[in-house]
Design a protein around this nucleic acid. Structure first.
Lengths: 332, 332
DNA sequence: TTGTACGCGTTATCAA
DNA sequence: TTGATAACGCGTACAA
């Protein structure tokens, strides 16, 4: 059994409260005589005392733990954010419990309820629900909450990318390069980000074909058979996993279309297919999360405004080559 | 304030012990008269009672929480495992706390100590330490522990890939293709996996050049300037992040060498550089973890044997094309 | 400056 | 079949 306050109290011939106060440190510890303070400290160090955080949590209702509830931690977009958020929170003495909803509303609710029961101090949430009231129904009203990536009307503590701006930027780049006939691969359209992105695409282009499915690589692969016969100039994907599958399957095709995609495509410069990405600044998103969260945890009631991070585009060498080829072709 | 056992006891004119027994369910609940049992159940449901898991943990010393302590959660290799492990554990009623050591021994120890204090039930660990005793010094001896990816002598509950076999396989493939002059990019050699892989490589090839650094993309990028002047037939990397950076930078080079790499390279089929991977079965690793962990959590003292998962190689189209070109060249 | 005593919500022991 | 009561380890109001 690990040592407790009682053990130290006995050893130092003091009471648990004295020991507790000494180990609390700071202003409260200074109210204890220097002599006993040192005596307690020494014994505590000697026997290697570590406070039982469960007991402390039960008493104080603070667990120094934050939950991160995302839709898919295997997605590099979220795992990068998880990594960054974890690092920053750790610096501030918080632990991180990882929750995967997998786009399932049931599991989302399961996890939200667990948060109460575990006295979790705060939540960074990539919501499935788009309904504020339904969400608040399952969590304590005062719970420090940061919505990530998928804004919910009526919740201000939000960090997300500017979907519309990014999508427009992406379309602009494509349009300027002469792209007209566009097909689209989307994740589930009941998910906000996919819906927004798809909509923005539709406003810019006449969509000649569309494929919807779970935001996984498989869906992207399926899309090839369905969309390529339409001979589109470009195929646009609403996230990286879809693009991953799509690109992977396109190797079979002779002259592949241009790929437009949300999120980064790793090593795209060495990929032979023309790609344009709408890049989201993962670092800014993660920093935004903790920037929103920490004040809430400190109990500052300050009304926070949504942090909306603009995206930018990036294209690969194959895209530039393709553009150049187009240009020379046109001038012929 | 959420409702407690006391609330239900008052409402049903029973005692907390009775309520506790009813809600415990199973064999223990059957010892309560069917009448009061139902009365309690109904009230509990009506007021939406949820047990306070912190109090329960303080009393029972079980938190139904597992810690996953990895070196870099942003690495797809680990985030995939994290995702799979989380899903399986969730099915069994466990939560997952995510810990990132970032290859820092200090943080590793910090986290290990935290585990005691939080009454964590079990640990899946990608260790920095290679010393069993040093490790066991910081965690309770009876803690269910599964070592992942980096075996430690003397610890049997281990899940890892067969580094040596995989490395040999990789080298074989390269050697058969005519590769002789090999350069190497490695992660920190004090990390077991990198060391093992590097050593296996050295046994198969005469290494003409070597670059060591943190297992990040940057290191791979740096390596290009240093190793390319040696004109190697192939450059081998000890993990995916290194290869990522390396490949990314190699686009600048005219006729790039073959890349040999541990871990999968996403979309390698559409990459124009010849690549051979030693692929590790992430799914098997994750399943292995829970398969080792669950019995330990149930208190079964059964001595478990290490699970060593064989790797296999995969190469991309560019590699096959390169092989073919070599062949025709030779026959000329 | 220090100690006593209570409560956080639950499970477990003992008695009835 | 039930209930009163004691822990679990900590923080804190109140007293001294």
């Amino acid at each position: 059994m690990p040592p407790t306050l009682v053990d130290i109290a006995k050893e130092t011939h003091t009471s648990v409260s004295t020991v507790s106060r000494v180990l609390a440190g700071g202003i409260i510890a200074n109210r204890i005589s220097k002599e006993t303070r040192e005596r307690v400290q020494i014994v505590a160090n000697r026997i290697g005392y570590r406070p039982n955080l469960v007991a402390r949590t039960l008493r104080t209702r603070r667990s120094n733990t934050i939950a991160l509830l995302v839709s898919d931690i295997a997605n590099p977009f979220y795992s990068q954010i998880a990594s960054l958020v974890e690092q920053r929170l750790h610096q501030h003495g918080y632990s991180l419990v990882l929750c995967n909803s997998g786009e399932s509303a049931t599991r989302e609710v399961e996890y939200l309820q667990l948060l109460n029961q575990k006295a979790i101090d705060g939540l960074v949430l990539v919501p499935i629900t788009i309904n504020r009231d339904h969400l608040l129904q399952h969590i304590p009203l005062k719970l420090p909450l940061v919505i990530l990536d998928r804004p919910i009307p009526g919740i201000d503590s939000t960090v997300a990318c500017d979907q519309h701006q990014s999508a427009k930027l992406l379309c602009d780049t494509l349009h300027k390069s002469g792209v007209r006939k566009v097909a689209m691969v989307t994740g589930p359209l009941h998910v906000m980000t996919h819906q927004r992105r798809a909509q923005a695409f539709s406003e810019c282009f006449e969509i000649v074909g569309q494929h919807e499915g779970p935001a996984r690589q498989e869906t992207g692969r399926e899309a090839v058979a369905k969309l390529m016969p339409l001979a589109p100039d470009a195929i646009i994907c609403t996230n990286n996993a879809l693009a991953h599958g799509l690109i992977d399957a396109l190797v079979q095709i002779d002259s592949p279309p241009v790929i437009g995609v949300f999120d980064e495509v790793p090593m795209m410069n060495v990929i032979s297919i023309p790609i344009v990405c709408a890049v989201q600044d993962v670092n800014a998103l993660a920093e935004g999360c903790v920037a929103q969260l920490l004040p809430l945890l400190s109990g500052e009631e300050k009304v926070s405004h949504p942090i909306i991070i603009p995206g930018h585009t990036a294209s690969n060498r194959a895209f530039e080559a393709w553009q150049f080829a187009k240009g020379t072709q046109a001038s012929n």
